[in-house]
Design a protein around this nucleic acid. Structure first.
Lengths: 347, 347
DNA sequence: TTGAAAGCGCTAACAG
DNA sequence: CTGTTAGCGCTTTCAA
């Protein structure tokens, strides 16, 4: 592979000049510029990104921490992140923590600041202390899906009003006439879906409804399946099931089918997120859509800003503790009515 | 962030020594070794990967080219790749070509050899010429899912006997007693699923069956849905549907349900791959499983070997044209019988 | 407008 | 065993 200096020699100039025309900085005479460009083309020169990273003191990559690509939401989000990152000249390194904080820490220790100049975190079951540490070391970190716009975490983040999402789901069900509910709350361990459930309860409470049983579950189809089976044993049976996530909602639909009941005739089901599968399931899942692409865009943008500014000021020191931690709030979640919800069979 | 020389100073040795103890090469005295290690711990030193990459002339990352993470197979595969890559000390940069050869080329041009020392390609709709070019430039490329073990492509690859997969699917349906088939063949444009269909036809032919209609479709649930609707208009209707991929098979199940028919009572459906969703759909999908994890492992392993050897010999020159292109063959696809197939209602 | 020179942080011979 | 000496390929002041 040809190097900068080879190009320079070929064009009869110095490496510095070549660098200048390539980075479009410093005035360069039009003729030499052309000569350099020709040489670049002739030799098929491509800049060596690792070398550039070293010289610039910053790598052109972002680390995307995810807890498990098994959940189809992550790939969708990763795709959006990749698009946004690329638009800002970054590559994305995918870091699968596998729900294991140690793996997450190992990743952070290795690449943060040395191979990637920023870290994006989805609900990756990471130790906040580890994140703060990498931040303190000078590598900005952004939380991509903070659930409570009103309660900022100690880290930069993009917040989505998930409480509202839960509320919208509840209101939709109530409007259809449902009064007996079963709720499937995911991410039990991290408690990260609590806000969604609170919103749901807000709606019920506002309507004076108290017929609601809760069940915690893993964030999977299987988890939702199991939880729904348990919920459906109640007497009287709920007429609608709310899940804090689409995957468990899908599982609930399976459970209902296995019991010989029909959605939405016998039972309504609603989820949150609007993953692709929600559109493609049968019946298609009614859900509260989260603006995934927008969130990805905001997250990358915020991260970029942090990178830019933290490089300007105070070297790689800890962020000024008195300064507020930046937060972006996405547009509101929106109800998407599809075929899994309907009025209850009888009142 | 502390640097190697800072650690060296702190330990009262030279950078070279620190490097030696860290890389475990060159004999180092036990006492100095300890001293260095202490200094590393005290300063919280972490090697700068970009710097190391430059010095070593090789980056610790692999590029994984995928056409679209939308298809749930890719994330599953990506996960397996990431695991394998990490085990060999590599990070993986995810490159979404979006089915667009130009995007793919741009990725290759930028990172191959400069930020990643190897390229893994799934069915990413890439221009073979581009791949050969990056290979010729000295960056090994491995095709992850070559469909015909008997017909090696011009590039190193891991092959899966997809023709056999199709055959197994056909045989399963035949054994159940089916004689009228509908086939949904995906990836029409690239023709990449042809082998699967050929295998299916092999089975039918061996059984003397000719009642088989084909329909091409996009590799999506939606694509399968549409194709199945078309297939089911035939008279007499097929009693079983074979899809060259799980996603379209799932779509076919939806179409059947929408027509008021039941799987597997009225129609049987079978796919290929065994993505997670196949297990979680209702009814659970019978399919021919591809050893995804194994393939990922073989691909990374092969890539590693190519990296190792191509660095030893002949600098970064084109691979010896007379040498055979290396190929690994995965273990055979296996039939996984679940709930979407059964004997036809009547003969 | 261009060139010279120093250095990013680390590795890799080769000496001592 | 450990230190010296060169770079890896590129960017970036600072001079010319």
């Amino acid at each position: 592979m040809p190097t900068l200096s080879e190009v320079a020699r070929h064009a009869g100039v110095t490496p510095a000049t070549v660098s200048n025309v390539l980075r479009k900085r410093g005035r360069v005479g039009e003729t030499t510029r052309q000569r350099v460009l020709d040489a670049v083309a002739a030799l098929g020169y491509r800049p060596h990104l690792a070398a550039r990273a070293l010289a610039e003191g910053r790598a052109p990559t972002l680390a995307l921490m995810v807890s498990s690509i098994a959940n189809p939401f992550y790939p969708e989000f990763a795709l959006a992140v990749e698009r946004a990152a690329r638009a800002s000249g970054h590559f994305v390194i995918i870091c699968n923590t596998n729900e294991d904080p140690l793996t997450g820490r190992a990743y952070l220790d290795q690449i943060a600041g040395t191979l990637s100049e920023g870290v994006l975190v989805t609900n990756a079951n990471l130790d906040f202390a580890d994140l703060r540490k990498t931040e303190a070391r000078g590598t900005p970190v952004v939380l991509c899906m903070w659930e409570r716009p009103t309660e900022p975490p100690g880290l930069p983040c993009v917040a989505v009003d998930f409480r509202l999402a839960g509320k919208l789901a509840g209101e939709h069900l109530l409007e259809l006439g449902h009064r007996r509910f079963g709720a499937i709350v995911g991410s039990k361990a991290s408690g990260i879906h609590a806000a969604r459930y609170e919103g749901f309860v807000d709606a019920l409470r506002a309507a004076g409804v108290t017929k609601n049983r809760v069940r915690h579950a893993a964030d999977t189809i299987q988890g939702g399946y199991l939880a729904a089976r348990a919920l459906l044993e109640a007497d009287p049976q709920p007429s609608a099931i709310f899940a804090t996530n689409d995957l468990p909602a899908l599982g609930a639909m399976h459970a209902i089918a296995d019991l010989g009941l029909r959605v939405p005739d016998d039972l309504s089901v609603i989820g949150i997120t609007d993953i692709q599968l929600a559109r493609e399931s049968r019946p298609a899942l009614t859900t509260v859509a989260v603006p995934t692409v927008e969130v990805a865009g905001l997250a990358v943008e915020l991260l970029r800003e942090l990178i830019e500014t933290s490089y300007g000021q105070a070297g790689r020191d800890v962020r000024d503790v008195t300064a507020p931690v930046p937060m972006r709030v996405s547009s509101e979640p929106k109800l998407v009515v599809r075929a899994s919800t309907a009025a209850p069979r009888s009142r």
